[in-house]
Design a protein around this nucleic acid. Sequence first.
DNA 1: GGCAATTGCTTGCGTGCGCAACCTTTCTTC
DNA 2: GAAGAAAGGTTGCGCACGCAAGCAATTGCC
Lengths: 152, 152
Amino acid sequence: MASTWLSASEMRAWRNFIESVSTMTAALEGDLVPFGLTLGDYEVLVRLSEAENHRLRMCDLATSLQLSPSGLTRRLDGLVSSGLVERVASPSDRRVMFAALTAAGHVKLVEAAPDHVASVRNRFLKDLTNEQVRSLGDIFEIVRANLTACPQ
Amino acid sequence: MASTWLSASEMRAWRNFIESVSTMTAALEGDLVPFGLTLGDYEVLVRLSEAENHRLRMCDLATSLQLSPSGLTRRLDGLVSSGLVERVASPSDRRVMFAALTAAGHVKLVEAAPDHVASVRNRFLKDLTNEQVRSLGDIFEIVRANLTACPQ
DNA sequence: GGCAATTGCTTGCGTGCGCAACCTTTCTTC
DNA sequence: GAAGAAAGGTTGCGCACGCAAGCAATTGCC
């Protein structure tokens, strides 16, 4: 059961999964090009739109996006120069910067979201039964829990 | 059913999935560091080891890895200078180059494989039931089929 | 209260990769 | 068989990101 090799079933799951991930990511990325957005950019907009006052501390945003601090700084540079996000200094702690959604950023998100959602459905969920979608949720909830529990 | 938004179940599947992917990739990558290998490098060694005569044409390897031609050229540069892979000119078609596993490359793969497999199991499959693993295989087989069928 | 440790963010550097341009070899078409 | 099209690989360039170092502000400890 727990041999040093993968069983046929495990192998099948792993290979199909790995293969799907890269292809799907590329497809989702491509679907966002018409909006001038990267998948990464889109994620930023989503997190900010869900946050209180449409703003988040850089470090919180970074961990939420699983991005290094420098990575987030650079990604934000792009979004700021596109006018979708702005940096706001915190009055209470002068070390921290907030990333804040601008009006234009909110508009852009509202504009792109339906397409992106359709994209997720088309590229990912389309041919799955409700039962399979539910199962998917269960499975990756377990995987996620396991990953966060892991000693790294 | 096919609204412009994701149902709760779809949302759960999507979010857990997306979150898991990046974390898991980082973890698998980290587990290979002791061997001086990248996940990408490891994939190259696997493909070559499975190929006839332990060699593949660059272009075939590139598509198999979902990598651009230039991307593969660079990745191979690294593996060649590590001595794990060598470039072999094709006698029959002088445009093509083979990427061929060296003896050292084979040794390295045999050395790293058990750890990597354990890594996949620990980070991914560990807490899943056999039924869930089977289901995972089913699901991503469908997803893969859908993705390859998609107009891009 | 003052000095170290910590936290938060940014910058310099290196790496990996895609795209476009390029060269070479082979295939196609007449 | 010669000219154009296509296929296979590599190189120049740019971009995104991680790591280590650095700087500023805050917290902790005595």
